[in-house]
Write a protein that binds this DNA or RNA. Structure first.
Lengths: 109, 109
DNA sequence: CCATTGATTCAATAATTGATGTATTATTGA
DNA sequence: TCAATAATACATCAATTATTGAATCAATGG
């Protein structure tokens, strides 16, 4: 994960509808979802959804697989983890983070 | 962390200069940095930097403390961890994630 | 082959965001 | 109070991004 990839991924997620789409795909897990299901689930117009899915795919956050006449979209967890790692690496100069909860997100501390 | 906060935070980070600023603050840790130091370090015009810091502050990603005539900016790690948690919660419907590395970002799997 | 359904692409408009220069506020020290 | 410095606020123009509707492409089944 480099800076350009991170900016691209963050930009793709910095939109309410796309964030909902992505989170739906994250929740769906390895099974993935089709655009039809997503459109029904999130109440988004299909062409708008198509546009947003393309944005997410372009940022590398989702993968596409064709099955017959349906497409299966899946969240790309390795890319996601790369992004999370990019955001937190080298943090706090080796000292402990001031985190209040038990989240392990700040792994390099 | 709700959706609006997440979108705001992601939008704030989805910009190369702001991402650099934020990562510098993350690396600086609890000590924080002043706008002057950041401007020198990143070679950004001071008024542009001020604008970007305001964006980050508005998204809740950085905190501001005044010390005499200087301001100290710090990354807000609790907000950051909230964002990371928001992105990954409920993922994969309880099944294991398809992560290739040893990152622990996907904590709810 | 043709009708139907799933999905995408295109083009025009509307809206948001970014960069830049200037002006303003606030603090320090004499 | 005055000068100098740190930092922000504002206004403007340029550029990017989002939305919408219509048209197009592709696959399935009769």
């Amino acid at each position: 994960m480099n800076e350009a990839q991170a900016v691209s991924a963050l930009g793709a997620l910095a939109h309410a509808q796309r964030l909902r789409v992505f989170r739906s795909l994250v929740v769906a897990g390895p099974e993935g979802l089709t655009p039809s299901v997503l459109a029904d689930q999130l109440d988004v117009a299909r062409n708008a959804l198509s546009f947003h899915l393309k944005e997410l795919a372009h940022a590398g956050l989702v993968t596409i697989e064709q099955q017959g006449r349906n497409l299966i979209y899946r969240a790309d967890f390795s890319q996601m983890n790369g992004l999370l790692g990019y955001l937190t690496e080298h943090c706090c100069q080796g000292s402990t983070c001031e985190v209040s909860d038990s989240s392990s997100a700040c792994t390099s501390c």
